[in-house]
Amino acid sequence: MRWRVPVVLGLAAILAACEEDRAAVPPAERSGNRYVGRELLLSYGCVACHRIRGLPQMAGQAGPALERIAYRSYIGGVLPNTQANLEHWIMHPAPGSAMPELGVSAAEARDMAAYLYQQVPP
């Protein structure tokens, strides 16, 4: 009986050590207020199209899930993933894209990006 605890703990440690890739945008390269960002994501209705962790999920899915956005290589499949590019995309999605221009200001985009990047990936 006594050996079980250390063995289970040992196995758990080995599993926990299975590291994931680092984020495309590491915490040191992020800025903005994620608490404000959360409220903004809700008030601009982003969840009507996107799945975002920690926010209520709507039925329809017009846009891709954003849960792993910090790990994705590209924003909108077009721009390299950096905070500056994500902010730019939130304000001005590529022409022709199904994502509408919502009149988001630069300061708001920064806070929204901050929330999107800190999601703990599933």
Binding site: G60, Q61, A62, G63, P64, G76, G77, P93, G96, S97, A98, M99
Partner: peptide, 11 residues
């Protein structure tokens, strides 16, 4: 779940 997504590549 692509069938449930309304757009392909957003376009």
């Amino acid at each position: 779940d692509l069938a449930r997504q309304r757009y392909i590549a957003g376009y």
